[in-house]
């Protein structure tokens, strides 16, 4: 049960189809476990459908309908046998969000003691900056603020950054006005799905900055 939800502007962009792919994956991961936000999204999609009636139509070309009819019976291509997907290990009982289907996910790479990460490559969008962060219980992430917008969906465990505790199912939406130092709570390790848009993370310390630059975040 989530207590931190995506803001309305994110859901509206998702409904309108204008949210960038990295953010869309994170927000969709939230929706998979949040009935409340699903209902919000449906409401906004219904608004999109209603507004379609108001739009000034643009005439289709002559013969468009018969060409469409010809296309109806063309065979639908059958996807070739899928290559088995290799993905990094997860804690027992945790499942991959479906929003990551089709994405390439690297094996866990060590960042430091108790801290690992994995880069996510989004098909058709090489610019998308998304990754997973996996930290052991009690670990803390260096204090930082954000050059752009950082969306974080907690997939497993929980962290506390002084503002609040963010548990599995919660979405954190942080920008340059948020300066925080997330600490994983003592109960278990924590895995987060993160999307960065509009600017890099700005770490306070030199070592963290160097690591961040190396990760490309």
């Amino acid at each position: 049960m989530s207590t931190h939800h995506p803001a309305d502007d994110l859901l509206l962009s998702l409904a309108a189809g204008s949210l960038d792919r990295a953010s869309a994956i994170v927000v969709s991961a939230h929706l998979e476990s949040c009935t409340h936000c699903c209902q919000q999204l449906e409401l906004l999609e219904a608004v999109g459908g209603e507004l379609l009636a108001d739009i000034e139509p643009v005439d289709m070309e002559i013969g468009a309908f018969s060409r469409t009819l010809e296309r109806l019976d063309q065979p639908v291509s059958v996807a070739v046998a899928q290559v088995p997907v290799v993905r990094p290990d997860l804690p027992a009982g945790m499942h991959w969000p479906r929003s990551l289907d089709g994405c390439d996910i690297t094996p866990w790479k060590r960042l430091g003691p108790g801290m690992r990460w994995s880069r996510i490559t989004v098909p058709g969008d090489p610019q998308a900056n998304a990754f997973l962060l996996r930290m052991a219980a009690g670990m803390e992430l260096a204090a930082h603020t954000h050059g752009g917008r950082e969306l974080t969906q907690v997939l497993y465990g929980a962290f506390d950054d002084g503002r609040d505790v963010w548990r599995a199912g919660d979405l954190d939406d942080a920008d340059g006005e948020v300066h925080h130092r997330p600490v994983v709570t003592a109960e278990s390790e924590c895995i987060c799905l993160v999307a960065l848009t509009g600017g890099r993370t700005r770490f306070d310390g030199f070592v963290a900055r160097a690591l961040g630059a190396w990760m490309g975040i």
């Binding site: 309108a16 189809g17 449906e42 999609e45 219904a46 999109g48 459908g49 209603e50 379609l52």
Partner: peptide
């Protein structure tokens, strides 16, 4: 869902 909503999501996707 309304037909317009359903068709809007098809066009959007």
């Amino acid at each position: 869902a309304a037909a317009s909503t359903w068709i809007f999501t098809i066009a959007r996707n």
